[in-house]
Amino acid sequence: MGDIKWACTERLNSDPMVDVSVQNISKTYDEGTVKALSGISFEVEKGELFGIVGPDGAGKTTLFRILVTLLLADAGEAMVNGSDVVKDYKEIRSKVGYMPGKFSLYQDLSVEENLKFFASIFGTTVEENYHLVKDIYVQLEPFKRRRAGALSGGMKQKLALCCALIHRPEVLFLDEPTTGVDTVSRKEFWEMLKRLKSEGITILVSTPYMDEATLCERIALVQEGQIMSIDTPDGIIARYPDQLFAIKSDNMSGLLRDLRAHPEVASAFSFGEYHHITFTDKQKIAEGASSFLATLSHHNLEMHTITPTVEDCFIQLMSHDGR
């Protein structure tokens, strides 16, 4: 179905594999005083699972709202599935699925009624695209007569996903779908996304959780309305410029303070059980870590090299940008 559409739609973009293209999109709020997005550009290929990763307030929701035609950008152009978000907004609305960060289904309608309603307003039926939502909907089936407002957080998100999918969108936009959902449900949710990908649906997902970034094919790290890096998660990790070490001792908070004050330490951040640190002089550390440890008067010191995570990369990029 998607291929036929490609053939008959004229596209500005020559690459037929690009499904979402964003060019220099900017958006400010409150008459320009608050910058939400400053000149963002990226492209997402057809059938890709693309992650927008960044903290709260990075501009993820604004970007999604522009792409699903709910908001007009101040500058820049964006195309979704061959249609311009400003000129052809009507076409986009019938072929994208949008799941907002805030649960926004009808709380006073039941699970079943919500699904039916959203199928009907897109001119389709639940039966027609049931195969798409089947895996998710079977979990909701026992509660299908329950009001959507009375569902648990995870169930709500699953229902919202079903409702965003029921018209078989070409592109699916999921704004922080796992925020406020428990770990098990989050895992399930990502597995569902992977299955959907195999249906050929392009998926853009935003998340503030760095650990979820590795589950995407490609990610864009955003911070204060700007993209700091776009690559595969492995690519982003491979670009980490320094050797990273994990260090721990009996007194973790004291250690962090000492590390940050240490002249040889370039950066030190707390990461759960360990502190992650980099050094100003890589050579010196490679020769002998014990001499460095000796300069710290801490008990049960333990240090080893580690491969960085996306979060390390994010922090590195952030501090690099900021200073």
Partner: peptide, 13 residues
């Protein structure tokens, strides 16, 4: 307030 209007807006209605 609930946000359902956005879901309606992102539809061919």
């Amino acid at each position: 307030e609930v946000g359902t209007i956005e879901q309606i807006n992102v539809s061919p209605i």
